[in-house]
Structures are given as structure tokens and as C-alpha cells.
């Protein structure tokens, strides 16, 4: 098999996940997109491990580790999302801008209108 096929598929999947992370509003959908990106990296790791055939099988071992870390990440991430949802009644990531820097301190009315909208 040409190595280009899995590599191109992994690149495209990664960019799909990148789009999802940037464009989605619900935090759980952002987590799904992160899973897609991790899976793209896993596909790359497996393909290159099968190509290189080293005795340590570093690619496949790292893939297993990434899968376990993704499971841990999704557990912690969902716990955080649930906590934010309980506190705010919403899990939209672009509404959580309390720590954002105020761009123009002399225009508080416009800022407040934007926050409420």
C-alpha cells in the first residue's frame, strides 16, 4: 500500500477536526472534533509504524497510549462541561468570555449589549 493514502486521509481528518474545533459552539461538539483530530494522529502513527517496522513498535504503543489519554481527556472534559453547564445553564463555548479582555474600556454600553446578545 502506498503510504500516501493513510497519510492523506489522516491529514484530511485532522483538518476536519480542526474545522470542528474552531467552528462549533457547543462544548461537547468541540470535544467530538478533538476526538477526530486524535484519531487522525493515531492513523498516522499506525501507518508509519507498519512502514518502519521497528522492533519496539513505538508507533503502535504510542497509539494505545493516545487512546487511553483520549479516554481520560474525554472524562475530565465532560466533567468540566457538566460543571459549566450547571453553573451557567449553557455549554456554549463562545458565551464563556468572562476572562476576556475588554477591547475598549470607554465603550461599556456596546460591550454589555454584545455580551447579552
Amino acid at each position: 500500500m502506498h503510504l500516501a493514502y493513510p497519510a492523506v486521509l489522516a491529514a484530511l481528518l485532522f483538518c476536519t477536526g480542526l474545522y470542528g474545533v474552531l467552528a462549533r459552539r457547543n462544548a461537547i461538539l468541540v470535544l467530538m472534533s478533538v476526538e477526530l483530530m486524535l484519531n487522525a494522529v493515531n492513523l498516522n502513527l499506525v501507518a508509519f509504524d507498519v512502514w518502519i517496522r521497528d522492533t519496539l513498535h513505538a508507533g503502535q504503543a504510542l497509539t494505545l497510549f493516545v487512546i487511553a489519554i483520549a479516554a481520560a481527556e474525554i472524562g475530565i472534559g465532560l466533567a468540566i462541561v457538566l460543571m459549566v453547564y450547571r453553573n451557567r445553564g449553557s455549554s456554549d463555548v463562545d458565551r464563556l468570555r468572562d476572562t476576556a479582555e475588554r477591547a475598549e474600556p470607554d465603550a461599556p454600553a456596546a460591550e454589555k449589549a454584545e455580551v447579552i446578545a
Binding site: C15, L18, Y19, L22, A23, N26, V93, D94
Partner: peptide, 17 residues
């Protein structure tokens, strides 16, 4: 479901791809 920066996200993803 999609936030306001969808065109920017699309541009970034297409450029990266």
C-alpha cells in the same frame, strides 16, 4: 450549533488541509 467564526474556521481548515 455553529458559532460566528465559521468562515474563518473554514478558511483555516482549508489552508491547513
Amino acid at each position: 450549533a455553529d458559532s460566528g467564526n465559521r468562515p474563518v474556521a473554514l478558511a483555516v481548515a482549508l489552508a491547513a488541509a
